[in-house]
């Protein structure tokens, strides 16, 4: 008989994915805007590095993160010394989720900014607003639905994260056992159906909802910019 609590895993997954998305949003917006609007040396390399977690096997991403943040690394050691050991903690779940969702978030914010006619920003400047005010008053609100759509996508990716999480965070009930890890744990367990059912329902339900919301937001974004054609 399995003693795994599926609701603990669902709650942890939702919290970790939400936190991961929220925490990476500012960096993704800054990077997405820079990639959409600026030309700089090494831009292609930056783009490639940002995309890397999307194409790397998640297990490899997890292993690399473990090398950087594990207890034996300088960063991991100083975090542990400060009383914040990262590996095999909920923080590691959030980090893994943030890293795998980041490429989707940056890509979406970049497309959201690219879809804005640059003349809106130029016009705002002629109306007396500097670069920062123009970003806050014009670029960000116009890109917002697209950024939100990307956040939903990154959230969903974070929710389903398995490989990097299991390597970096392990499989500790209540601390690091997310929906995907709980499903994996139950695969070989006898009489696991009662615990499995809510996990599968949550996975499918949340993913479907997220994809729907993403579609609606993307449509809204393009309509508002006058780019949507029936």
């Amino acid at each position: 008989m399995s003693t795994l609590d599926p609701w603990l895993a669902i709650g942890l997954s939702l919290r970790a994915a939400a936190l991961a998305t929220l925490l990476s949003l500012p960096a993704a917006i800054a990077l997405g805007h820079a990639l959409a609007r600026r030309r700089f040396l090494g831009k292609a390399l930056v783009e490639a590095i940002v995309l890397l977690p999307l194409v790397l096997p998640p297990v490899v991403t997890g292993l690399l993160l473990l090398r950087v943040f594990g207890r034996r690394s300088p960063i991991g050691a100083s975090l542990a010394a400060a009383g914040l050991p990262l590996s095999f903690s909920t923080g590691a779940v959030v980090l893994a989720a943030a890293i795998v969702g980041f490429p989707l978030l940056v890509r979406s914010t970049r497309s959201a900014f690219e879809a804005i006619d640059v003349r809106y920003e130029q016009l705002s400047r002629t109306l007396g607003w500097g670069k920062v005010s123009t970003f806050v008053r014009v670029s960000l609100p116009l890109a917002a639905p697209g950024i939100l759509a990307g956040s939903v996508l990154a959230f969903t990716r974070a929710l389903g994260e398995f490989g990097a999480t299991v390597v970096l965070a392990g499989n500790v009930e209540g601390d690091t056992r997310t929906i995907a890890l709980a499903v994996y744990t139950l695969l070989d367990a006898p009489r696991s159906d009662p615990a499995m059912r809510p996990l599968l329902a949550a996975s499918v339900g949340l993913s479907l909802l997220a994809v729907l919301v993403h579609e609606v937001l993307t449509r809204h974004h393009l309509e508002r910019l006058g780019l949507h054609h029936e």
């Binding site: 003349r119 809106y120 130029q122 705002s124 400047r125 002629t126 109306l127 609100p141 116009l142």
Partner: peptide, 20 residues
């Protein structure tokens, strides 16, 4: 001189009203 320091009233041909 950046645009915000020029005191310009620019009316583009397609108006470019802020859609939001």
């Amino acid at each position: 001189a950046p645009p915000e320091q020029r005191r310009i009233g620019w009316v583009p041909q397609d108006a470019l009203l802020f859609p939001h």
